[in-house]
Amino acid sequence: MSRTSRLVTLLLAVLLLGTAGTAAVLHAADRSDGRDQEQAGGPPVRSGTVSLRTAGERQLLVRNLAWGPHRDEIATVPADRPNGARTVSGVTCLRFHAAAGTGICLQARRGALQDTYRAVVLDSRLHELHRFPAAGIPTRARVAPSGHLVAWTVFVSGDSYAGTDFSTRTAIVDTRTWAIDDNLETYTVTKDGRRYHASDINIWGVTFADDTRFYATLATHGRTYLVRGDVTARTLTTLHGNVECPSLSPDGTRIAYKKRVPGASPDAPWRLYVLDLRRMSQTATAERRNIDDQAVWADDSTLVYALPGDYGSDLWTVPADGTGAARRLMTSAVAPAYPG
């Protein structure tokens, strides 16, 4: 073959490859134009309008973990059809929660040298209302039933609750005034009926009762406690030991939480329990696996929580009274919220 022939052949090959590449890009774009997409091994996902206030059908909102162009976006499905097609919002969050038309979205901004994080308060259409810098890696987020208060927890150092080498920072914001308590460790602590001071106090996992009262975890000297907080008095009072990541039931009578159980692996120490706040009696749920999440109450009798899955996390559900069995609710999803 002459040199001229080889050049012509090479040019034709380059043109063919370019045409094929263009076709592939156009095909991918066509699949991302808002129509349903079957993610590889995952649920159908489509772009659309997501609202925290819906008339009629109750919604479940999650952070979508299905592989594809909409991974990490907040998505919605009908609460009674969690495996149906997901409508994604275009809003990406690492942690998310919502109630009464208010959302809290914890986000990462990737930098060349260092990532930064922020907490973004959203309106009912997931539009930004206000943002605050976050001091570390997002881990927990909650909105009060009224939508008037939001809270978040970040890891300032470390990235796991399993050991003792970590430090958290928890903040509460009033969405009516944008006043912020950016470190709940400054609250006055009463432990076992006495004022308590310690340099190693950590607070995390807020769950709201109303616009004044909340519950959270306090850790000190290697032990954890359920505390009741008061945002007006700026106080924390210990109630019960060995409680982490509390979640208050809709009727305000029980706390779902992670409990460290004797004999468990240090890397997988927690089981899911429910505490009766009046009797201070605890019930183990039927979920026997390690739970590293702040559970959500789907209703007064059912818990929803995340466990590792093929795409990062799946959502599971179990009765709160210790009966029944755990079952998978939804694949490739995390950070559930029933916004009401």
Rank of each mutant, 00 (worst) to 15 (best):
L7N: 13
V8R: 15
L11E: 13
L16W: 01
L26Y: 07
L26A: 13
H27N: 11
R35T: 09
R35Y: 02
E38R: 04
Q39D: 05
Q39C: 09
Q39H: 07
G42A: 13
G42V: 03
A55W: 04
E57Y: 00
E57G: 02
N64Q: 04
E73H: 06
I74G: 02
A79M: 06
N83A: 06
S89W: 08
S89T: 12
F96C: 04
A99W: 02
T102G: 11
G103C: 03
Q107H: 11
D115Y: 13
V120K: 03
V121S: 08
P138D: 08
T139F: 08
V154H: 02
D159P: 08
G163F: 08
T164F: 10
D165F: 14
T168Y: 07
T170D: 05
T177N: 09
I180F: 02
L184W: 02
Y187D: 06
R194P: 14
R195E: 06
D200G: 07
D200K: 11
N202I: 07
D210C: 13
R213H: 15
Y215E: 01
A219T: 15
H221V: 05
R223L: 11
L226C: 09
G229K: 10
V231Q: 10
T235R: 14
E244F: 09
S249G: 05
P250L: 06
D251C: 08
R254W: 00
K258G: 04
S265W: 01
S265G: 05
V274Y: 01
L275P: 15
D293I: 03
D299R: 11
T302C: 08
A306F: 06
P308V: 09
G309M: 08
Y311V: 10
G312W: 10
D314G: 00
V318P: 09
P319F: 05
A320K: 12
D321V: 07
D321Y: 01
G322R: 13
R328S: 01
T331P: 00
V334W: 09
